[in-house]
Amino acid sequence: MNALKKIAWKTLGLMGYAIQYGCIAHCTLEHIADYVLCYGPSMEPTIHTKDVVLTEHLSTKFYKITKGDVVIVRSPTNPREFICKRVIAMEGDHVCTNPSSYIKSYEFVPRGHVWIEGDNSLNSTDSRTYGPVPYALIRGRVFFKAWPFESAGFIKPPPEDIKKRVR
């Protein structure tokens, strides 16, 4: 009977450690940093399908997202999906929605919103389709591409033509 008690206490002790480590892992992935497997061509050539990127959540919590950051956002059209896009404009900015046209039209980004677009503008569903996105939908800021190893590194800055579209 004494041996059974020892086994029970050891099992409970191990379960306690497993629960503690699980809580630490959950809090880390939810509030500090995370990894994401990306799909779709909208961020090419910066991020390709099946690339694994590392994201951090502190920038969103402390409102430190800036123009040019690549972010993971809860999709405005399907809340079960997350999308990866680049922040083009912040609240209060006017962004050109048709840069290749002779007559330019500008969209105003209201308070508490951002304008996001994919780097591959010909193959991206983004703010040009559904308008400004609430800041609260931003999940995290992508800071590092981890996979594949041969293209691992920090995320590149935005193309120069993006900066010209915001006033």
Rank of each mutant, 00 (worst) to 15 (best):
S127G: 07
K156Q: 14
R139A: 08
E56F: 06
G68D: 07
N123R: 14
I72L: 05
P157F: 01
K145L: 05
T66W: 03
L29A: 05
A152F: 10
S100C: 07
N98G: 08
S127C: 04
E117R: 12
A146P: 04
A89K: 03
W115M: 06
E81M: 13
Y106G: 04
F82R: 09
K145H: 11
I47M: 09
K6D: 15
P157W: 02
K85M: 07
K145C: 04
T77R: 07
R165L: 03
V166Q: 10
A33I: 15
R128F: 03
A18D: 08
S121M: 10
T77P: 00
G13S: 13
A146H: 03
L4E: 14
Y21T: 12
V166W: 07
D161W: 12
I72V: 15
N78Q: 07
P148Q: 06
C23D: 10
G40Q: 02
V166C: 08
C96P: 00
P41H: 14
V71H: 02
S101L: 11
F154V: 15
T60C: 11
I83N: 01
S75V: 02
G153A: 01
H31Q: 03
K5I: 15
N123S: 13
V109K: 08
L58I: 14
R128I: 00
G118F: 01
M15V: 12
N2P: 01
N98D: 15
P159T: 03
E44A: 03
R80K: 05
V36M: 09
V73S: 09
I47Q: 04
K164V: 02
R141E: 12
H113P: 11
C84V: 15
I83S: 10
T97M: 14
N98V: 01
P79G: 01
S127D: 04
G112A: 01
I24N: 11
S75F: 06
Y135Q: 00
E117Y: 08
I116P: 05
I32W: 13
R111F: 05
G13P: 09
E150A: 02
V133H: 09
Y39M: 06
K6E: 15
P79H: 00
M15K: 10
I32C: 05
F143G: 07
K163P: 00
C27V: 14
E150L: 09
I88G: 05
H57M: 03
C23Y: 10
P159E: 10
D93G: 02
K5P: 06
L54E: 01
E81A: 09
T55I: 15
Y17K: 04
C96L: 03
A136P: 06
E160H: 14
G13N: 14
R165G: 06
A89S: 01
L58H: 11
N120F: 05
K156E: 15
C23W: 11
C96G: 00
P134L: 04
G68K: 07
M90S: 11
L12M: 13
H31W: 15
